[in-house]
C-alpha cells in the first residue's frame, strides 16, 4: 500500500505531510516518556522484523500480492498506538529514501495510512475485543480491521488525488486488502502475539497491569 510520488499531486501530498507531522512528533514524545533502556531492544527488534517482513509479499490470487504492515502488532506489544506510529515512521523513511518503496513526497500519506490509521484502529479494536474474545482473536481482528480501514482511506485519497475513480477504487482496494489483511496482517499478528504471550507473558501484561499501577502512583504523587 506504499503510495509512490506519482499517485498524489504535490499540493495534496504536502497536506498529508502536515496532517502526519503532529502524529510523528507525538510518537517521539511517547518514546521520550515511555521508552526505557529495557524496552529499546524490544522496539528495535520489532522494527527490524517489520522492515524485513514487509519485503515478503504473499500472493493472494487475482494477480495480486500483499504484505504485513505491522503497526497494530507493535501497538499491542507496547500497549500504545504511538509505538506503532513511531516504528512505521522509521520503516517508511528507510523504505522511501533507500529503496524507492513509497514516495518521499507521499511519505506523509503513507505514515498516516499505515502508521496512524492501521495502528490506532488495530490497537483500539484489540483493546475493545480482548476481554470478550481473548488475546488471539482480538489481535487478529484488530490487525485485520486496521489494515482494511487504512486501505479504504487510501482509496479515498487516491480519489481526491484524481488518480482512482471513487467506487471502483474502493471496491478494488477493499477487496484486495480484506484478503491481505486476513492472512498478511491478522494471522501473522495473532501468531506473533500468541508466541510472545507464551514466551514473554510479562511483556503483554506490563502494558495493562503495570501501566495502570504506574498511573495510579503518578496521580498520587
Amino acid at each position: 500500500m506504499h503510495i509512490p510520488d506519482s499517485f498524489i499531486p504535490l499540493s495534496q501530498a504536502v497536506i498529508y505531510w502536515i496532517i502526519a507531522l503532529p502524529f510523528i512528533i507525538t510518537s517521539m514524545k511517547w518514546a521520550k516518556n515511555e521508552l526505557d533502556e529495557m524496552k529499546v531492544p524490544i522496539l528495535a527488534a520489532l522494527a527490524a522484523g517489520i522492515f524485513a517482513i514487509q519485503a515478503m509479499n504473499i500472493p493472494i490470487g487475482m494477480g495480486t500480492s500483499g504484505h504485513m504492515v505491522g503497526a497494530a502488532l507493535v501497538a499491542i506489544v507496547f500497549g500504545s498506538p504511538w509505538a506503532g506510529v513511531l516504528v512505521l515512521t522509521l520503516v517508511l523513511i528507510v523504505q522511501g529514501f533507500a529503496f524507492g518503496d513509497g514516495g518521499v513526497t507521499t511519505m506523509g500519506a503513507n505514515i498516516l495510512n499505515m502508521g496512524v490509521i492501521s495502528g490506532f484502529i488495530g490497537y483500539y479494536t484489540y483493546v475493545a475485543l480482548r476481554k470478550s474474545v481473548g488475546t488471539s482473536i482480538a489481535s487478529f481482528g484488530g490487525a485485520w480491521l486496521g489494515l482494511f480501514i487504512s486501505a479504504v482511506v487510501c482509496a479515498v485519497e487516491m480519489w481526491i488525488a484524481g488518480t482512482f475513480p471513487l467506487v471502483p477504487g474502493l471496491v478494488a482496494m477493499g477487496t484486495y486488502h480484506l484478503i491481505i489483511g486476513f492472512i498478511g496482517e491478522g494471522l501473522i499478528t495473532s501468531i506473533v502475539i500468541m508466541a510472545i504471550a507464551k514466551s514473554r507473558p510479562d511483556l503483554l501484561e506490563d502494558n495493562f497491569t503495570a501501566r495502570s499501577e504506574k498511573n495510579k502512583k503518578e496521580t498520587h504523587a
Binding site: 524490544i42 524485513a52 517482513i53 515478503m56 495480486t64 500480492s65 500483499g66 482496494m173
Partner: peptide, 29 residues
C-alpha cells in the same frame, strides 16, 4: 532482541526467493 534480529535476517534471505512478484494491492487496483 537477538531472536528478533535472527528472524528478520532470515526473512531478508528468504524474501527474494519466496516473496510474490505480483503487484501489491495498490498497484493492482
Amino acid at each position: 532482541f537477538y531472536v528478533g534480529i535472527a528472524i528478520a535476517l532470515l526473512l531478508a534471505i528468504l524474501a527474494p526467493f519466496l516473496a510474490s512478484s505480483d503487484p501489491d494491492g495498490l498497484e493492482s487496483a
